[in-house]
Amino acid sequence: MRKFVYAAMFLILAMGLVYPLAAEQPDPEELAYESYETAYFQGDDVRWRASMEIVDDQDRTRSRVLTILRKNVGEESQKYYAYFHEPSQLERMVFLVWTAAGMEDDDRWLYMPATDMQQRISGRQKRNSFAGTDFTYEDMTGRHPDQDEFEYLGTDEVDERPVYVIKGEPRDPDLVEFSYYEMYIDQETKLPLKGEFYDPQEELHRTLRLPEFEEIDGYYTPTLQVAENHSTGSKTTAEMSNIEYNLGIGEDIFAERYLRRPPTQWIDP
């Protein structure tokens, strides 16, 4: 009987020790949502200038310089307007994207100044290259967490900052080129400092990194991002500058009317 009491006491004690530890383990889905909100949903609107350099496996470089306007519409919808300043062959090109959580495809329009044509383009493929860079459309507008199932992997460090590591597996693998990804989320800011995407053979084929960020207008904001495609050996570095939140950008400019005619109050063409 005494042995039974001791065993029961040991079990209760052990559970008492284990339970608080288990309770401290973060919910991976909650982490994914927090990270998504921090990286893509801060402020009512934001404007920034992105200077991108694409270096291929033979060290040849190309550039993209663009101004991006983003406006949150409602709880989970956003509109993006991207105006290209450089290179000269893409100057005045405009991407307009309406994206919403729960929708399989975005609404996208493209204005090509070379042909002076505006057209609606398919928005199902969110994993295509964004304007010839190693970033995808989804890297620019964010991958909504409800598209994946998450698993908590533990903690680690990225650039000497403590991070949570979670694994995301797509609910619909047919829509993406990866089989799963691991996301390294900064414990303090909740920014995704690194994302590693693995192909169906479980080989690392893409890495996204966020080596630099700043607190701007009270929001933690990426100022340097790097996308590497390990399959092609190509790498794109994007420097963000002139970042301003809550400018009062009207929703009306995210429309076809402004594809040919950039809104000069927000964009210096």
């Binding site: 398919s122 199902r124 493929q125 295509n128 080129e177």
Partner: peptide, 10 residues
């Protein structure tokens, strides 16, 4: 009808 078969094929 136009569709993206894969991210790189339309």
């Amino acid at each position: 009808y136009e569709f993206d078969h894969t991210p790189t094929v339309t």
